[in-house]
Design a protein around this nucleic acid. Structure first.
Lengths: 137, 137
DNA sequence: CTACAGTCTGTATTGACTACAGACTCAAGA
DNA sequence: TCTTGAGTCTGTAGTCAATACAGACTGTAG
């Protein structure tokens, strides 16, 4: 009776398809310990279920938002421990938000320099080039 | 008379100091061929001069602006060949500018999601957390 | 029985560095 | 002259976050 209400079992390719994750990335996440090692068939095939789908989606979404693996590991510890407080997670999110904003500021500075330099270009065939001069000076 | 007006000779650490570049990065740039292999003393020490300072500054500035090494290699070929046209460089710069703008757009999207999610947090000690829910759902 | 697709493992590659070990050189001080 | 410490040399390994591949095994359909 134990598998009367059977859980849907997935192999690796199916998990990859359902999460839109690269096949090999799943194994990689298992190796670095952010995905749990799933049970195996007698012949060694990994067997996943819905809990793995949720876990992987969590990781992928956090990666999309630019969290580093180590930051995600921290978030997962909070989730797994069941001891997380909203305050802790909020603090980590805000730290990360500050990082993202700093990156945006960097890129905007780069954008300004590139745009200003490119706009000086005549587009002529002459070898004098304001971009190269800006880089060389 | 050949070294009557002697060029200022620098060793690696001095070049690093003057360009604010990591010591090992200089050797790396030589290895991958964006910096020329400098002459050596009889005992094998690299000997740099002002031309190396200029070259390295060019590379570092381009890196700061987010050009990839391969893009820089392309810019350097234009410089070295003496055949560069302003139009070519302008085109490459504008391609790169488009990449930078795409990255900014990505990060701004991420920023919006993070900010919106974090602002829902109560900061309370309760384990329900809108950030984790947003990631898990 | 034989294809063929899927999975398994470990390892190599990417980009742009950075760090380290172990040997060598150089200049200054005792 | 000897020693000490700083600088340099080489090759190699590690970083991050995957991605790719080779070679062996398994599972299934015809």
């Amino acid at each position: 009776m134990s598998d009367h209400v059977s859980v849907k079992r997935l192999q690796r390719a199916e998990l990859a398809r359902r999460t839109n994750c690269n096949l090999e990335t799943i194994r990689y996440y298992e190796k670095i310990g952010v995905m749990p090692a799933p049970p195996r068939t007698t012949t060694g095939y990994r067997v996943y279920d819905e809990s793995h789908v949720r876990r992987l989606r969590f990781i992928l979404r956090a990666r999309e938002l630019g969290f580093a693996i180590e930051e995600i590991r921290g978030l997962l510890r909070l989730v797994d421990g069941g001891t997380q407080t909203c305050a802790e997670v909020k603090a980590r999110t805000e730290d990360h938000l500050a990082d993202v904003r700093a990156k945006i500021a960097d890129l905007r500075r780069i954008e300004r320099v590139l745009a200003a330099t490119a706009s000086k270009c005549t587009g002529d065939e002459i070898p004098e080039c304001p971009v190269l001069e800006a880089l060389a000076s």
